[in-house]
Amino acid sequence: MDWNKTKTIFIIVFAILNVFLYSLYVNRYTEVKRIDVQGETKIEERLKMDGITYPKLPEIETASFASGEVWVFDPKEVKDAKGQTLRLTDDRGTIVGVPKEPVSIKGEDGKLDFGGLLDKYVKNGSDYKLWKADEKKREAVFFQTIDSLPFYFNQSSTLTVHWNEALEVTDYQQRMMDEIVLFNQEKDLFPPIQAINALYSRGYLKTDSTITKVEMGYSPLVQLTKTQVFAPTWHIHVKLNDGTSEDFFVNAVDGKVLDKLPEQIIEEDG
């Protein structure tokens, strides 16, 4: 056998093999890179492609956790009530008020206006912010706020108002928190666009829906013996194509999508 010839053949075969392997490698490499690039498509663009729009996002970068204690109403306050009759529940945690004179909630252009009730009848009424008014059920739900940020679906700080056909308040039920403090340590927040992304990537946002509101508030986190602790929370309100709307909540510190808040479930069951 001609050893020289054999050697040449070997060299040529290996050279071809090398070229082949190299081309395989290059292909793989660019493929991987392409996938990477696709993965990096900005959330903004992906939302656009799915027809999901959102408003100008809040520019809050840090926030504190908050804590509060359940307010226990004073029976004396109930007895001395003017212009309304008040009743306390056994645990003194809920007050039920019935105005003696009609209090109208009829606002301009057919809108509801609860200003009169909140100002004159409800204790610390200006701290409550309207969450939802259901005109069919004739019921409105308000959440207590701190620095105008609401405590979402926190049972111990909601106000519920009912009215009659003439748009006059029939009664209201109030629970209140007291000793609300913000924790000293400010935490860096999960940016609102990332909160939207968290919803999007879990399939919560349907195509062609419109995010109409992104707001900051608080959601219940921990219940201590006396005190409740709240986490900064993004509230994202979404209008769907069919006219219905949905509300989502994302923990603004760790980006976790909150399952339905406990009271929200209760409300739906009830």
Partner: peptide, 17 residues
Amino acid sequence: DNNMKDLARLSVSQTLE
């Protein structure tokens, strides 16, 4: 990640109480 100074102090003091 799972605690804060204010929370620890509140929690410990209320449990102590």
